[in-house]
Simulated assay, not measured.
Amino acid sequence: MEWYLPVIWAGLIGTAVAMYVILDGFDLGIGILFPTARNEVQRDQMMRSVAPFWDGNETWLVLGGGGLWVAFPMAYAIIMPALYLPVIVMLLALVFRGVAFEFRLVSHSKVWWNFAFTFGSLIAAFAQGLILGGLIQGIRVENGEFAGGHFDWATPFSVLCGLALVAGYALLGATWLIMKTEGEVADRARGQAKIMLLVVLGFMALVSLYTPYAFERIANRWFSLPNFYYLWPVPLFTALVAFLLWRWIGGSRDSLPFIATIVLFLLGYLGLVISSYPYLVPPSLTVWDTAAAPASQIFMLIGTVFLLPVILGYVIFIYWLFRGKVKEGEAYH
């Protein structure tokens, strides 16, 4: 088997996951922050800031899941039954949230749709954290098949990851509102962003301390020599970005806090990749162990080469077309 094909596909899937977390993360964050709005006018303003983007953002989730199924069928066949419950809860919550988004626009009474939008966003974010925690702590595999229980993912560590992701998405949502709105919504988002930044840093510190303590493979990756010499800039740069983000939240350049939050997420994501690669199903199966036949990977890679620029072009065009701030009292259509 050509060794580079699984690496290419792992990079593509990893990129799709990162794009989803960032792009869908801020509109999930809007839903999490939704109850803090004072009235329907402010909630409309928050909705309007994400209305052109939210459904396209979820394209990356489809690409990531479909890529895993095609390029790494063994990993897909193990991860899905291991994490079936949080995965199905996440998907149902995303559907619930999408329905609430559309029906709130035409409903005379918005109370229940507001609740549905917030509830769907919160549950989807928390379920994604449970999935992340379940993957990090590892999946029991025997003879190439899932050999654990249906609730192996349900641990204090996965709950910690779920809460951390909820806080992270709320930070993304708050910095998005700073960049895309004005008036009281943007002013309140600045205070929320500072609070969420402290919460997120606390969760990052807990996860960073707990994982090397609980999982020997992660401790060896980060603290063995010469790895330590190469990897110490990652937490140092993370602290620098967090410091700059704190300063920029109160500054006049409204796009900088959102950009810094994206960089903070990417650094956290890089830390997870460093901790787990090349294991696609930690702690036993690598990207090469679970890869599909080279012919299948090449066939799908040809299609992806043409499809990916189209998706990226669409994303760039939509974000450019709907650039600028959403004003107070501006309704969405």
Rank of each mutant, 00 (worst) to 15 (best):
K325V: 12
L201S: 06
A75I: 07
F203H: 01
R48S: 14
F215D: 08
S208W: 15
Y230G: 04
R140H: 15
P81N: 01
F258C: 04
F151A: 10
L165N: 02
F203P: 04
I298R: 08
I22Q: 01
T175H: 04
W288M: 01
T59F: 11
W246P: 00
L130W: 06
W69M: 11
V315D: 09
Y210I: 15
A51N: 14
F26W: 15
T155D: 13
L266G: 07
L171N: 06
G11D: 09
Q192R: 12
E182A: 11
A293E: 11
A186F: 10
P73R: 13
V159E: 03
M80G: 06
A292E: 04
A82Y: 03
A127M: 07
V273D: 06
P86R: 00
W113T: 10
L198N: 13
F306P: 02
Y314C: 06
M179N: 12
V87A: 14
Y4Q: 05
A51V: 13
L240T: 13
F119M: 15
K110N: 07
V185D: 07
T118R: 12
V263G: 03
H333W: 08
I32G: 03
W3Y: 11
A37P: 09
S255M: 12
L132M: 14
S208H: 14
P309A: 03
L23G: 05
G56Y: 00
L177D: 08
G25P: 03
A116E: 15
L301P: 00
Y213I: 13
R188G: 05
L63W: 10
T36F: 13
K180P: 07
P81Q: 06
L5E: 00
L130I: 13
T15C: 10
W9N: 00
V310P: 04
V62K: 05
A293T: 04
K110W: 08
Y279R: 08
I88D: 12
L272T: 13
F215C: 04
H150A: 14
E2F: 04
P52L: 10
I78L: 08
C161I: 05
G138S: 10
W232T: 03
